[in-house]
Design a protein around this nucleic acid. Structure first.
Length: 379
DNA sequence: TCTGGGGTCCTAGGACCC
DNA sequence: TCTGGGGTCCTAGGACCC
């Protein structure tokens, strides 16, 4: 029988740093921008379990973290290091199980064959100990027949544990858990479900299905199947990245057009560089802002054909930002807190380095450098 | 005392086409 | 003068995840 061992690295960024600085083990450690070294609007990226005891969590504003735990050791984020170690982890797993699906920088679903829960548990324990000794990293593992159940189990295994859920006991394992334990149920969905009488996963089976459906639409069917212990494992296709983006939050909210334009240009060119490294072309460009009041706006444009031209990315982004601000100025004129530019409708670079339009010359949709907007988008 | 950066998927409406 | 239904693409917004 095929089982999923869902591997979730514990306090991943912190654990990566502790590998290099083992003398910090046992102390409250925070990865993120130390606000005592200079002004920042940053948040905590990762906190050791010792720091979590003080109430420190990922995404907590660092100014609050310093007050909650003045004695913490702060380490600036080193994303290149975390990416490199993530590749190590994947290689390690791939060498030990028949199939690995990486699901985020610190999570992976490993498929193994096991006759029953005892064999699955032994496989999970072996894998966990090989990660600890071979990579010097702590991991929690959930084992189940369905990926989503294995993931929920891995959350219950933290930190450093193994939780096995057999097919027979899946429904009873899930029933008492809060509905928030289901991946995809966040604060908003949980509140809607609470109003419908659903607070725990088991409640989904006790409430009239029509009520659940009214609360969360077609997601209700997925919740019902999960509560019964037989979730549908529909996994997204792994057809390469859908989008790439770059963002900047200003130290002070920005309203000056020239400074905004300069920042956007830098973001666009930095984004173009990373697309080039991955040999990806793009067809859509989106500019998104977070206004000073934390409101959100975005505007996008799609071109008739793909390109990798950094100048096109920058120019289109500039135009879209201008439109976004023009629309805004019809009412208030809020300053911008965060500016981001994203490229989507990505495609691998053509095998040759020739431009795409060289292959479609003569078509009325042909455009120089693939840069002209499609009819619809430019109207 | 505030609230990052990089992603994914879903929905709904309009335009357009057959 | 009035009448479909189905399908695709694009845009905007929302929710969620690590």
């Amino acid at each position: 029988m095929r089982w999923i061992l869902y591997v979730d690295m514990d306090a991943y960024y912190v654990s990566c740093e502790l590998r290099d600085r083992p003398e910090l083990a046992g102390r409250p450690v925070i990865v993120g921008p130390d606000p005592r070294l200079g002004p920042t609007r940053g948040v905590v990226l990762s906190a050791s379990y010792e720091a979590r005891a003080f109430g420190i969590r990922s995404a907590l504003p660092v100014l609050q973290a310093v007050r909650l735990c003045p004695g913490a050791v702060w380490i600036p984020a080193d994303h290149a290091k975390y990416d490199a170690i993530a590749r190590e982890v994947r290689l390690h797993l791939a060498g030990r199980v028949p199939r690995v699906v990486a699901l985020s920088i610190d999570e992976a679903a490993c498929e193994v064959d096991a006759a029953g829960p005892d064999e699955a548990r032994q496989a999970a324990l072996d894998l966990q100990s090989s990660i600890r000794t071979g990579l010097r990293l702590p991991a929690s593992i959930g084992a189940a027949v369905h990926r989503v159940v294995a993931k929920i189990a891995s959350d219950r295994a933290k930190p450093g544990g193994v939780v096995v859920v057999s097919p027979e006991e899946t429904a009873s394992f899930l029933a008492p858990l809060p509905i928030r334990a289901v991946p995809g149920v966040g604060p908003k969905t949980a509140e809607r479900l609470r109003l419908a009488g659903v607070e725990r996963i088991g409640d989904v089976l006790a409430v009239r299905p029509a009520l659940v459906r009214r609360a969360v639409g077609s997601f209700a069917d997925e919740l019902l199947a999960l509560a019964r212990g037989v979730p549908e494992d529909h996994h997204r296709d792994e057809g390469g990245p859908r989008s790439r983006s770059a963002a900047e939050t200003f130290l002070e909210d920005e309203g000056d057009s020239e400074r905004l334009a300069a920042s956007l240009d830098q973001l666009a060119r930095s984004l173009a560089r990373s697309l080039a490294e991955e040999r990806l072309w793009f067809r859509s460009v989106t500019v998104a802002v977070r206004w000073e009041d934390f409101g959100h706006g975005q505007r996008s444009r799609t071109m008739a054909s793909a390109t990798d031209d950094p100048g096109v990315l920058a120019a289109l982004a500039a135009r879209v930002l201008a439109e976004l601000r023009a629309k805004e100025s019809a009412g208030r004129r809020r300053k911008i807190r965060t500016l981001s530019v994203s490229a989507s409708r990505l495609a691998p670079a053509p095998a040759t380095q020739r431009r795409l339009d060289a292959f479609v010359a003569g078509s009325d949709r042909t455009v120089k450098n693939g840069a002209r907007l499609s009819d619809r988008a430019s109207s």
